[in-house]
């Protein structure tokens, strides 16, 4: 039995390494720089490639109080949801998030219609309170996003933040802003490898380097189509490692926003007898969604519940022990 019992899959290509945050010397003001990507193996298979960076957890923070926030989350975030800066500081502190994902939902014409100026002030205020880079998301309303995110991009020029999302139908304005101001971008595709690839080509065609793009494959929560994104991500990542550089970007998965929309994360035990403790059930719904995405190749997870963040952070630490 001379032959060793091992099958190694060697990658031909590494995932692009993306840097978030710039320190004073590089034109920003961040004390902490974060990197994702750079790996040449499927998740946590250290024996057959490099995995230089642990996946990151970004805590989801919104500039507007969600009126239908599930009660479990509401309790866990009591006194924070109407103060985005305090909320962010709390998530970075005891909960242990690696960075903040700020969603400017309140700029949406139908949900607050806040101005670009308000958004800029919030982001600037937040940058003063945290040492890390930020993820800044628009409200999903294309025209307004183009105004708001361009303004925020300009105001934070040189900080090397991560802005999102651009989609196939609306990518030019924000991409141009990110090129001009030295930021990274999230490219969103609807659970579709071909569109993901096409969008990356479009973005790079207008001049954004490939190592400044993150793919948002659009995930579903546990029990709500999770398996589609799971397989799309595995397919894309396998293709990237086999040499397709237009798919060789890190993935971001919006775990919190999806998991907390699930009935299983919202319903109380009295409304659903036999379903167990609602707090734990909601937390585990977010945790298991996050873990499945990690297995599929997620590089950045956005999450909501502080306890879920703690559990997944510990899981990542354990998984990264080699």
């Amino acid at each position: 039995m001379a032959e060793e019992l091992k099958v190694l899959d060697r990658a031909c290509l590494k995932i692009y390494e993306l840097t978030m945050g710039a320190c004073a010397a590089s034109g920003g003001s961040r004390k902490k720089i974060l990197k994702v990507g750079g790996q040449s193996a499927m998740p946590f298979l250290f024996e057959e490639g490099e995995i230089p960076h642990a996946p990151l957890i970004a805590a989801e923070v919104s500039d507007i109080v969600e009126d239908d926030c599930p009660f479990v989350l509401k309790n866990a975030l009591k006194g924070l949801t109407d103060k985005p800066v305090d909320w962010a500081v709390e998530m970075m502190g005891e909960a242990g998030a690696d960075l903040i994902c700020l969603k400017l939902q309140g700029t949406h014409p139908d949900f607050g219609n806040k101005t670009s100026k308000e958004a800029v002030e919030l982001v600037e205020g937040l940058l003063k309170k945290v040492e890390t880079p930020l993820i800044v998301l628009g409200s999903g309303q294309a025209d307004k996003d183009n105004d708001v995110l361009s303004a925020v991009s300009e105001a934070t020029k040189g900080e090397r933040l991560l802005f999102g999302d651009v989609v196939q139908e609306n990518y030019k304005t924000l991409t141009a802003a990110c090129i001009a101001d030295g930021h990274n971008i999230i490219a969103e595709s609807p659970i579709d490898v071909n569109i993901a690839k096409q969008l990356n080509i479009l973005i790079s065609d207008i001049g954004l380097p490939l190592d400044r793009i993150v793919i948002n494959p659009t995930i579903g929560a546990l029990g709500y189509g999770l398996e589609y994104a799971y397989s799309i991500m595995e397919r894309a990542r396998n293709a990237a490692l086999a040499g397709d550089k237009m798919l060789a970007m890190p993935f971001i998965c919006f775990v919190g926003q999806e998991a907390w929309r699930a009935k299983e994360a919202k319903v109380s035990e009295s409304e659903w007898p036999g379903s167990g403790n609602a707090d734990t059930r909601g937390i585990m719904w977010e945790v298991v969604t996050a873990l499945a995405m990690l297995q599929a190749g997620a590089d950045i997870l956005t999450m909501r519940h502080p306890q879920a963040i703690r559990i997944v952070k510990k899981a990542i630490e354990d998984l990264m022990k080699r």
Binding site: G223, L226, S275, G276, R281, M284, V288, A292
Partner: peptide, 13 residues
């Protein structure tokens, strides 16, 4: 159940 249900759901997916 609050621990088992997420696992059964993941398996189903």
């Amino acid at each position: 159940p609050e621990y088992v249900l997420p696992l059964l759901t993941l398996r189903q997916n």
